[in-house]
Design a protein around this nucleic acid. Sequence first.
DNA 1: CATTTGTTCCGTACGCCGTACGAGATTGTG
DNA 2: CACAATCTCGTACGGCGTACGGAACAAATG
Lengths: 250, 250
Amino acid sequence: MPVEPDPVLPLLWRHVVPQEAEAPRRGPRQRLTLDRIVDDAIALADEEGLAAVSMRVLARRLGIGAMTLYTYVDNRSDLVVLMVDQVVGRRDLPPMPGTLRERLRLVADVQLADCREHAWLLDVTGVRPWLGPHVGDRYEWQLSAVEGVGLDDVEMDQTVTLVVGFAANVARSEHAVRAAEKESGVSDLEWWEANAGPLGEFTAHRDYPLAGRVGQAAGEAYQAGTDPARELSFGLERILDGIEAYVSSR
Amino acid sequence: MPVEPDPVLPLLWRHVVPQEAEAPRRGPRQRLTLDRIVDDAIALADEEGLAAVSMRVLARRLGIGAMTLYTYVDNRSDLVVLMVDQVVGRRDLPPMPGTLRERLRLVADVQLADCREHAWLLDVTGVRPWLGPHVGDRYEWQLSAVEGVGLDDVEMDQTVTLVVGFAANVARSEHAVRAAEKESGVSDLEWWEANAGPLGEFTAHRDYPLAGRVGQAAGEAYQAGTDPARELSFGLERILDGIEAYVSSR
DNA sequence: CATTTGTTCCGTACGCCGTACGAGATTGTG
DNA sequence: CACAATCTCGTACGGCGTACGGAACAAATG
């Protein structure tokens, strides 16, 4: 059985390929644009999380019937794909600075900023990469940071993946705390105040010499929250050291 | 309003603290053990994914009524917390080898293996870390890899986070492909065969000099799938280079 | 012994979810 | 004008988590 082309692709690339959208179609005009719908879906996800973007809630927000959404989009997961590409396309990508180190730092900063502003991006799974034009633009821009430094093609991809993945992990750990607070309705600090006692009784039955000491230090450092960039910097600098060493060794 | 202690904690630590579980309780004995329930939930998640672990389906698998599950667990998210700690506790942790590099490689390998065998771990979000005894054991073990090399406490945590997070990202990218295949019912290869044409028409309207070249090379390298460890090695070795350089510079 | 009390078990029901289906309204085409 | 295609959207189905209440049961109490 042959596989049909994915119907979400023409939607993703709708602004790149003007196509025959100009041909007048029968029936009433659509009252909304797909851009408007996806923008509202993004706003909703920013405010309430990806799970809150249900077809009914989004439709009500847009002032249309729930099923009307399905005349714009085949299903919910296609909508999420469109959201990702559209939100990635919003950021205009600064020109690459001079040194490799500065370039990769910029790549990480941009990724972290996007994931912080749209934490639901971290919840998007099961999407084939490299689908939409803006994601393509982003990948192209990221690769331009490591072009011409002596890496082969596969290594370029792996380097970008490494840096971008690390930035996403930083955002993910931040997001995990917020998500837990939101789900339970209890702030992180309140939770620890209420549970330090019971937890202490339990851990007393086991030995956690390192975890106890280090966990506390890391928790305080995080709680102090001096520089939000601080969490990023240690890991990122180690990664960049490793990449620079590799590049200059060739 | 004071916050109550989290009722999932006694469940998590039930095997560590024998507590008053021995006291005979009124009413009929519970027909199942919590361990059995969580084990079945883990098996179900391994087979069908975390989303397939619904209270009804799990209860049917266990041969009990759906609502009976709530006499063992307060709610579904508590069940997931128990699943995580229990599955993390299954692996027995090998002793740490001699060099820092070997140690961190082992930490990464173990993390990757767990995430590959139980890909649903990557879907677990909103869980406060450091909750259960086995997660604590794991963290203790991971920290022992970087103990005594000259890092301060916060740096030890960041180093472990860096390595573990990278291994998880490798598993995540593998999982993303499988998840997309499962959701759409179309294998990755089939999808690209069916969509290479349309996608080519779209990308022809835009310039992706690097992304086109590198994406193809990376895709082929992945498709060839020579050594599964290969994907891990490049990024991990760069990270370890960076960590070693930092450690020896102090 | 009988009664009370706290548990376990679980059927029913409510309000969510994604979405299949089909009826009516609206528009361009022959 | 009639026809055909398209948009809009109410209804409905099967899933989800889980609140609630009743029945069965076993230990504590009289």
